[in-house]
Design a protein around this nucleic acid. Sequence first.
DNA 1: CTCCAAAATTGATCTGGGTCAACCGGCCTT
DNA 2: AAGGCCGGTTGACCCAGATCAATTTTGGAG
Lengths: 236, 236
Amino acid sequence: MKPIVTIEPNWQLCTDCAVRASAVCSSLDAVELREFEHLGRRVHFSSGETVFSEEDITTSFYNLLEGVMRLYKLLADGRRQIVGFALPGDFLGMNISGRHNFSADAIGAVTVCQFAKAPFGRFIEDRLHLLRRINELAIRELNQARDHMVLLGRRSADEKVAAFLLGWRERLVSLKGASDTVPLPMSRQDIADYLGLTIETVSRTFTKLERHGVIEIIHGGISLLDPAKVEALAAA
Amino acid sequence: MKPIVTIEPNWQLCTDCAVRASAVCSSLDAVELREFEHLGRRVHFSSGETVFSEEDITTSFYNLLEGVMRLYKLLADGRRQIVGFALPGDFLGMNISGRHNFSADAIGAVTVCQFAKAPFGRFIEDRLHLLRRINELAIRELNQARDHMVLLGRRSADEKVAAFLLGWRERLVSLKGASDTVPLPMSRQDIADYLGLTIETVSRTFTKLERHGVIEIIHGGISLLDPAKVEALAAA
DNA sequence: CTCCAAAATTGATCTGGGTCAACCGGCCTT
DNA sequence: AAGGCCGGTTGACCCAGATCAATTTTGGAG
């Protein structure tokens, strides 16, 4: 009996790509896109799988197409700091040392557009606009990183959680449109490791916010009942 | 009577520049350097002066030539997070929003090479190698930022201080050569705001390290008596 | 030199968030 | 439907580091 298998072509049209407008490739014209199409290869990862690990030699770059990823660094004794969550359109893997400087896991099912390092490097070589785009993304990330330093170093647990909810919602808004229902695909532990807190503190803060009628904890996320109040708590 | 004034020319030869090899300009050839020379202008700042402030519209980029700067962000209530210290060779001011995303003060006397935004942007426009160099610097900074997130979110006070001393020494090594005497031009408050601690905790940790014979607190810095012990404390 | 202000140190006490531990509930497997 | 597991919540207690409060030291300015 013939097995039932879904055949995924090695590549698909960039023109149909969901992240076409936001990702690195937004800087490419129609002609370049045709060539670029053959460079990338769609790859799926299931929940919890590691896409690449810190200190691994970089063999590929990744353009996240679908799903969410956690980007993190581990200390020798197992302490973990999540340095960011990746969403569709995010470009991962750039570094100068030739090794990844953080690890990346799939949170839920994930699809990436994977580029082998060498051909991608060759393609980029003389394309000023693509390099500019990558530079722009790097600078944007640098800003986010600095904002997150402020959060980690100088904000209270309440402020951290409130700022996280708003920031996460904001990113989803620009992806799927505005909503006061905020899906949280990541675990409480992930949130804790992102905010420099413990899982218990995150949980307690959530319930505190719920008791105060500011949010409602729903299955797989939260609902922002009083966004203004959350903003006040985040105290910019 | 003729006043005694030191006349500083608007520009000096890049070829003589102290940071020629390490800074952005390391990517330029001899011909480009001649043109580049006329773009930058040496400017001096004295201790404590602010070179640019967060949210200011970006009118210039800066290449730090001499001295040390603190780069920081403030919360509305005055809490401060220092996101980094700049040393000679560091390039400051890149952003995509058109506004600076952190403030920068001189720690002690500082000399910068200042570039007006527009002409610099024009110069960079079609110079792939310069853009690549800037990109490289951005990615390097991004790594540092992520490392610092781990420190802020997941390390104890002792680890933070030990890691800071080692990291700072490391940067000075690549600038002035190896030494176990580590000058600390920044105040205790600066160190505290960099590490997400209070001034008292930094001070106490220093004295604790000194009591244990690991460092010696000297005028304007510390001396690493037992670098191996400090590395053990920093616990990578 | 003396005086003053700012920076740093030190001590005493407090507390936000961590730690430890019990428990709950959804969901998968048998 | 029973059992078990895993993620999340809740409670009791603790402690690293913050806060509050004096000193002490340092560095100019006169």
